[in-house]
Design a protein around this nucleic acid. Structure first.
Length: 271
DNA sequence: AAAAGCCCCTGGATGC
DNA sequence: TGCATCCAGGGGCTTT
């Protein structure tokens, strides 16, 4: 599920409610992608200072150390004062003085990992290679263009890789490329400065719009209040193979790139 | 250094 | 109704 907008929407839906909370207890379910990395009991008594986001990771700063939370493909968080009994896909639960934080993740591609410090090896391994944040000031058109110059791979896959810019997943990559009128198969380094600039603007626009819509709910995403998102209703190409382009009415195409589906309009995205 | 494939896992949709 | 196959918001790791 979660690309940058869904992760950010999740963050916004519980960050202020959990800030300042003291950890009372932890419960782990089935194994996630990586082990927690510490004895769960050792976190009891610490407090949650704030919740930040880096790419598709949520960072829960504790009074000592931090938790890195990733939602994988099917994860979602809920934060509430009381919750129904844990189900088979609830794999992490942290009870605090201000509510219970629970991760539900059927496919278990997600993770909750403890790092003793921001610069600890585990944090560096997971976050160290990440590109620039697309919604922050540091993401300029010039920087984006420069980042593409060393990439000979198709632009769609360069966006997905997250090493030039983070947070763009399979939905928003297709959507941003449509908005910019760029064929997903074009080699990144071959984009002109002008077209890279257009894509830069499209990435920001699509992601910001998706955050404002509460993210995309395709099957199981909801924010920490349990509310769905609505961006998918305004998708121009994603999951619309064979349907008419909303701009030119030509049939939307689907192709595979790196074992992931890519959607595009053959007319609006001519090259 | 960069690119391409391979997995991890469960569940829903589709087809025979 | 039952079973096989394919597909899904990600990304680290291994191999070219």
């Amino acid at each position: 599920m979660p690309e940058l907008p869904e992760v950010e929407v999740t963050r916004q839906s519980f960050a202020s409610r959990i800030a300042g909370a003291q950890v009372h207890s932890l419960r782990m379910g089935a194994p996630l992608r990586w082990p927690l990395g510490c004895e769960p009991q050792s976190l009891v008594g610490r407090s949650v200072l704030q919740v930040r986001r880096r790419g598709k990771y949520l960072l829960l700063d504790l009074s000592e150390g931090l938790l890195l939370v990733h939602l994988g493909m099917s994860g979602s968080l809920v934060f509430a004062s009381s919750l129904p009994p844990a189900g088979k896909h609830d794999h992490f639960e942290m009870a605090t003085s201000q509510g219970i934080l629970r991760l539900n993740d059927p496919r278990r591609f997600g993770a909750v990992v403890y790092a003793p410090a921001q610069d600890a090896p585990i944090a560096h391994k997971l976050l160290g290679h990440l590109g620039v944040e697309p919604l922050e000031d540091g993401f300029s058109a010039a920087l984006f263009y420069a980042g593409l110059q060393s990439r000979n791979a198709p632009i769609k896959q360069v966006l997905l890789a997250g090493e030039v810019v983070v947070g763009v997943g399979n939905i928003y990559a297709s959507e941003a490329l449509f908005m910019a009128g760029i064929r997903p198969t074009v080699k990144a380094a071959r984009l002109s400065r002008a077209r890279a600039s257009k894509l830069h603007a499209a990435v920001r626009s699509v992601l910001a719009s998706a955050v404002a819509q509460g993210g995309s709910t395709l099957r199981d995403f909801s924010n920490a209040h349990g509310q769905a998102g609505y961006f998918q209703l305004q998708a121009n190409v994603y999951d619309r193979a064979g349907l008419p382009c909303k701009v030119c009415a030509v049939s939307i195409k689907i192709i595979k790139q790196g074992q992931r589906s890519t959607f595009f309009c053959p007319l609006c995205q001519k090259a």
